[in-house]
Design a protein around this nucleic acid. Structure first.
Lengths: 209, 209
DNA sequence: CCGCATCCCCAAAGATACTG
DNA sequence: CAGTATCTTTGGGGATGCGG
C-alpha cells in the first residue's frame, strides 16, 4: 500500500490525486476542515466507510503530510486527528469541488441535512471570498454569520444584511440567484456582491445527473 | 456499475466525487481541457490506464454529463470526445488541485515533461486570473503567451513582459517566487501581479511527500 | 468504550488478447 | 482505430475480535 499505485506522470494534478484521490480521502479532509476530530467521530460522519479503510486512509494522509495524529492532554485521554497547514490548504480545492458539484446535486430534502451544514458551507464556500461586511444567515434552524471574512455560529453583532430562508431557498439562491422564499433585510446589494464573488455562473450538466 | 457505489450523503463535495472521483476520471478531464481528443490519443496520454478502464470511464463521464462523444464530419471518419460546458466548469477544480499538488511535487526533471505542458499550465492555472496585459513565456523549448486572459501557443505581438527560463526555473518561480535562472524583460511588476493572483502562498507538507 | 487489526467476500482495477 | 471479452489481482465493504 505504501507509496505504490500512483499515477506515473510528472503532473501536479496527477500528484495531488495520488495523495488525496483515493476513495474517502477528501471526505475525511472535509470533516477535519471543521476542526480536529476523533476516530470514532469520523467514522460516525462517514456512513459506510468501514473501520479498516478509515484507519488506512488516516495513516496514508498522515504519512503524506495532510493531517496529524495528536494526543489530547491528560484529562481527556483520547486522541484526535487534525489537518496540517498543508491539509488546510485543500480548502480552495474543496470550495471549487462543492461549487461544481452543487450544480447537479438538486435541492435538499429537509431530512438529508446534518446539523452544522450551514457553517460548513459558509466557511468553505463563502467566507474565503466574502467582501468586507457582516452577514447573518438564518436558514432553517441554523444561524451562522460571516464577519470580516470569517464564518461563525450565531448572530452577528451589527449585521449589514440578514438573510432568512430555508434550506431549499438557500440552495436556489446560490445556484440560480433566485430569491423565492428568501427574506433579505438590510444591504441587499452587499449580498449580491457576496453571491457574485462566491461563484461564477456555471449551470448544471446537459443531462441531469 | 451504473449509478451504484456512490457516497450516501447529501453533500456537494460527496456528489462531485461520485461523478469524477474515481480513479483516472480527472486525468481524462485534464486531457480534454486541451480540446477534443480521440480514444487512442487519450490512451496514449494516460500511461497504464488499460483500455477497458478508459472505455468505462468515458461511458460514465458521458452519462453524467461531463463529456460528449462526437463523430467528426465525413472526411475524417473518426470520433472524438469533448467536454460539455459542465465538464469545462471543472477547470477551477483542476486549477486548485494543481496549485495544491505542485507544492509537494518537487522540481521537474527535464525528461519527465511532455510537449505542450506549458500551455496546459498557463491555460488552467494562470490565464483564468491573469491581469490585463500580454505575457510571453519562453520555458525550455516551449513558447506560450497569455494575452487578455487567454493562453496561446506562440509569441505575443506586443508583450508587456517576457519571461525566459527553463522548467526548473519556472517551477521555483511559481512555488516560491524565486527568480534564480529566470530572465524577465519588460514590466516585471506585472509578472509579480500575475504570480500573486495565481496562487496564495501555501507551502508544502511538513514531511515532503 | 475507543482505536484500530484481521478475516472474508465481492466489486473494481490492471493486463492482455481479441474483434467489428 | 475503437473498443469488448476474459482473466488475474488488488482494494473496498462489512463483520468481528481484541488490546488499552
Amino acid at each position: 500500500m505504501i507509496v505504490s499505485k500512483r499515477y506515473d506522470q510528472y503532473c501536479p494534478i496527477a500528484h495531488a490525486l495520488g495523495l488525496v484521490g483515493e476513495r474517502w480521502a477528501l471526505l475525511i479532509v472535509r470533516e477535519l476542515l471543521q476542526g480536529p476530530k476523533r476516530y470514532t467521530d469520523l467514522a460516525a460522519q462517514l456512513p459506510g466507510i468501514g473501520t479498516n479503510i478509515l484507519a488506512a486512509r488516516l495513516k496514508d494522509l498522515e504519512t503524506c503530510g495532510v493531517l496529524t495524529k495528536r494526543r489530547l492532554p491528560p484529562p481527556a485521554a483520547s486522541q484526535v486527528y487534525e489537518l496540517t497547514p498543508y491539509g488546510e490548504a485543500l480548502k480552495p480545492v474543496m470550495r471549487q469541488l462543492a461549487i461544481w458539484g452543487i450544480q447537479s446535486l438538486g435541492e435538499p430534502k429537509e431530512d438529508e441535512l446534518y446539523p452544522g451544514w450551514l457553517e460548513g458551507a459558509l466557511d468553505t464556500v463563502f467566507a474565503p471570498v466574502a467582501p468586507a461586511g457582516a452577514f447573518e444567515f438564518r436558514v432553517g434552524d441554523e444561524l451562522v454569520s460571516i464577519v470580516d471574512g470569517e464564518a461563525r455560529v450565531g448572530a452577528a453583532e451589527q449585521p449589514d444584511v440578514v438573510i432568512e430562508t430555508n434550506a431549499v431557498g438557500f440552495y436556489w439562491l446560490f445556484v440560480e440567484r433566485r430569491f423565492d422564499g428568501v427574506t433579505v433585510e438590510g444591504d441587499r446589494e452587499l449580498l449580491e456582491r457576496l453571491l457574485d464573488a462566491a461563484a461564477a455562473p456555471v449551470g448544471g450538466p446537459p443531462v441531469a445527473a
